[in-house]
Amino acid sequence: MTIANRVKEKRIELGLTQAQLANLVGISQQSLQKIEDGKTQNPRKIVALSKALECDVEWLESGEYTELKESIPQYKSEKVKPLQANRIQARPVITHGQAANWLTFNVDTEQTKWMYTEYSESDKSFWLKVVGDHMTSPSGLSVPEGYFIFVEPSLTPQNGDLIIAKMLQSNEITFKKFALDADRVYLKPLNPLYHAIEATRDIQVIGVVKEARALFKV
């Protein structure tokens, strides 16, 4: 079943016409018709659409996931503002290659997957899938491979933050803990099997991680 099928199914279940649902969402009937026809597969007003259809956003978008959310700022809680439903935003899920050039990268809104967060503070924030086991810990905070992390580039990292950085020589992206030791900065993995990296001029911090989310297929 596609998003088009789910929208139409829920609309009919609630006894709404296309015109009525479009009015509730704040879009034109033509725009809703394109969603139900499958021509628009990533509607930008999907949060409003889910509210109007009285269903979960993630179910409406994918239909095949339940989610477990973990608020990363448990290690830096003062960075999280109280949750506000009206601040939920759709932010793009990008690749590591796109993250390396994120400030100049242009998102194709129709082809890009979007996920939702209450923690966005700028229009440059994004979601990134964790690759590798560097941040998998046997105890305490752990962000395993396959998790999705929400990155906010507008924040300046503080001691203890989890961050995304770019290795300038290789143009590779790394996910580590930002640690200050005297006058030196280190990027530390949560996995004790790996060593810390001293942050030099060859490393560029891209953003601070504010949330981690695991998606499980049902």
Rank of each mutant, 00 (worst) to 15 (best):
I203H: 07
A100R: 01
R201D: 14
T117G: 07
F105Y: 09
F105E: 10
L180I: 12
W102E: 04
A100I: 00
K166H: 03
K81H: 13
P82V: 10
V143I: 05
D202N: 12
T112E: 04
D133M: 12
L103W: 09
E118F: 14
V185M: 04
P144L: 02
E152G: 07
V143E: 02
L180M: 08
P192C: 13
N159V: 07
A196S: 13
N191C: 11
V107I: 14
L168K: 12
I203F: 08
E78R: 13
A199K: 11
L83K: 08
I164P: 02
T104I: 13
F105H: 10
V205K: 02
L141E: 07
Y186K: 03
N159A: 02
D183P: 04
I88E: 02
T117E: 08
G160E: 06
V93I: 08
T136R: 09
T200K: 03
F126D: 06
S139E: 14
K81P: 03
T117A: 09
E172H: 14
E110I: 00
P189D: 06
V80M: 15
T156I: 12
E78S: 08
L193G: 00
F105D: 04
A196D: 13
Q89N: 01
G146S: 03
A90P: 00
S125W: 15
L83R: 08
S125M: 14
K188N: 11
K176V: 08
E145W: 02
P189Y: 12
W102N: 01
E145V: 03
L168H: 06
E172Q: 15
D181W: 15
H195N: 14
T112W: 01
E110P: 00
D133L: 12
K177Q: 09
E172C: 11
D133W: 14
A99H: 02
Y194Q: 00
P92F: 00
S170C: 13
G97C: 00
T200Y: 03
T156K: 10
A100D: 02
D202I: 04
R201S: 13
L128E: 04
Q169S: 13
I164H: 03
I88V: 11
H96E: 01
T112F: 01
T117M: 08
R91L: 05
A90T: 00
V151D: 07
A99E: 03
L162D: 01
N101R: 06
V185R: 01
Q158L: 06
F175I: 10
K81I: 09
M167K: 14
P138D: 13
K166R: 06
S137V: 07
T200C: 01
Y194K: 00
T174Y: 11
D181A: 15
I94P: 02
S122V: 08
A100V: 00
W102T: 01
Y119I: 09
S139T: 12
S142N: 06
A179F: 06
A100G: 03
W114D: 04
R184D: 15
S154D: 05
L193Q: 14
V143D: 02
M135I: 15
P189Q: 09
N159E: 05
T109F: 07
V80H: 15
A196Y: 10
Y147H: 05
R184Q: 15
I164K: 02
T104L: 11
W114M: 05
T136D: 12
F126C: 07
L141C: 05
P138K: 09
L193E: 14
Y116S: 06
P144R: 01
T117F: 11
T112P: 03
G146A: 05
R201C: 02
G132P: 08
V93T: 00
I149F: 13
A100K: 02
